[in-house]
Simulated scan of single mutants.
Amino acid sequence: MGRMGGTLRLKRYGAPRFWRLHVKEYKWAVHPTPGPHPLYGCIPLIVLLRDVLGMVETAREGKIVISSGKVKVDGKPRRDYRYPVGLMDTVEIRDVGKAYRILPHPRYGLYPHEVTVDEASFKLCRIEDKTTTRGGHLQLNLHDGSNYLVKVSNPQNPTEDLYQTYDVLKLTLPDRAIADHVKLEKGVFAIIIGGKNVGLAGKILEISGGPAKKAMLVTLEGKEGDHFTTPYEYVFPVGREAPLISLPGWAMRG
């Protein structure tokens, strides 16, 4: 019988470019632990500290910092140096008093954008799917692999069902309570998380196509009045009249 399951080995040549690894310096890279984000949509904690942020010089130093519980991801200390950090995750380094939010970048794919410690106390999560559980309650499946259960008082008339797929929830950290709900609709502010316009942000002007959501196209207007179009599934709402999170300069250049 053949070997089952994936491999835990990863060569630097096959690692994502946004990890900033020197391909010819060493042969092997850190393989992220299976978790909330896929391999090519995450950054292992040790790579984030050493290669992307440059806060430690060696993997040994990074492992000491991480294992001591000084690094928080989404408000919780993570002691696994291979823990995957992905889109919209918040990372707080306690000793230096700095916090970051992982955002899409036009060139690097994913990049840590520095935010205040207060802003790191919440997170935006997109609803990827909805399911009904036993008792008629509603389960929201979020983009980071987590689920949120919405209690329904009357399954025959679920008035609590206010959410649609691709809407975004603002969750407080670390208790993950819903603080706000942003629908993907005309007039809201959004950032693009895939395609050739990845990393750009703007206000949604038009949603066309259909009837399936994945067949729709969304037109956004950038800060300088430029228009760009992207598939519906690449749009991540971040606010109504203004973004709920701080956005870097590269996102506002459109």
Rank of each mutant, 00 (worst) to 15 (best):
Ser68Glu: 08
Phe189His: 10
Met88Phe: 06
Pro104Phe: 01
Gly199Asp: 09
Val188Leu: 02
Phe122Asn: 04
Phe236Asn: 09
Met55Cys: 06
Val96Thr: 09
Pro106Ala: 06
Met4Arg: 13
Val30Met: 01
Gln139Asn: 12
Pro106Phe: 05
Arg79Pro: 00
Arg79Gln: 08
Ala29Lys: 06
Arg253Thr: 14
Tyr100Asp: 09
Val47His: 00
Leu21Met: 03
Thr131His: 07
Ile191Gln: 11
Leu49Ala: 00
Arg17Met: 01
Thr33Cys: 09
Tyr13Cys: 04
Ser67Leu: 05
Ser121Cys: 02
Pro248Trp: 15
Ile178Glu: 11
Leu149Met: 13
Ala179Tyr: 01
Gly195Thr: 06
Gly5Ile: 03
Gly135Trp: 04
Val198Arg: 15
Gly225Ala: 09
Trp250Thr: 09
Val235Ser: 02
Pro44Phe: 03
Ala215Asp: 14
Glu119Gln: 10
Thr7Trp: 04
Gln164Cys: 11
Thr131Glu: 14
Asp118Trp: 06
Gly97Asn: 03
Asp51Ser: 15
Tyr100Ile: 08
Tyr100Val: 10
Gln164Lys: 15
Glu241His: 11
Ile178Asn: 01
Gly2Cys: 01
Lys24His: 08
Val56Arg: 06
Gly222Trp: 08
Val235Thr: 06
Arg176Leu: 02
Lys24Ser: 02
Ala251Lys: 01
Asp226Gly: 10
Val168Gln: 13
Ser246Ile: 12
Gly239Ser: 12
Leu200Ala: 06
Thr58Pro: 08
Met55Ala: 03
Val198Cys: 05
Gly249Thr: 06
Val91Trp: 08
Lys76Phe: 05
Leu142Val: 11
Gly249Asn: 15
Arg176Asn: 05
Pro32Ala: 10
Arg60Cys: 04
Pro32Met: 06
Pro32Trp: 03
Lys11Phe: 06
Arg12Trp: 00
Trp28Lys: 00
Asp175Ile: 10
Thr58Gln: 00
Ile204Ser: 12
Met88Leu: 09
Pro231Gly: 04
Leu169Lys: 09
Leu87Tyr: 12
Tyr234Asn: 13
Glu221Ala: 03
Asp129Trp: 15
Gly109Ile: 02
Ala15Asn: 01
Ala29Pro: 08
Val56Ser: 05
Leu48Glu: 11
Glu57Cys: 03
Lys151Cys: 00
Tyr232Phe: 12
Pro112Leu: 05
Met88Ser: 03
Thr131Pro: 02
Glu61Ser: 12
Val23Gly: 00
His227Lys: 13
Phe18Leu: 11
Pro174Phe: 08
Gly187Arg: 12
Arg253Phe: 12
Val198Pro: 00
Asp89Val: 07
Arg134Cys: 10
Cys42Asn: 05
Val30Trp: 00
Lys186Asp: 11
Ile193Gln: 07
Gly194Trp: 13
Asn154Glu: 14
Gly35Leu: 10
Glu119Asn: 07
Asn197Thr: 12
Tyr40Val: 07
Arg60Thr: 03
Ile207Asp: 06
Val96Cys: 09
Glu92Arg: 01
Gly2Thr: 08
Pro155Gln: 10
Asp161Trp: 15
Leu244Ile: 10
Ala120Tyr: 08
Val71Cys: 07
Ala59Trp: 07
Gly2Pro: 13
Pro248Val: 05
Lys63Ser: 12
Lys213Trp: 03
Tyr100Met: 11
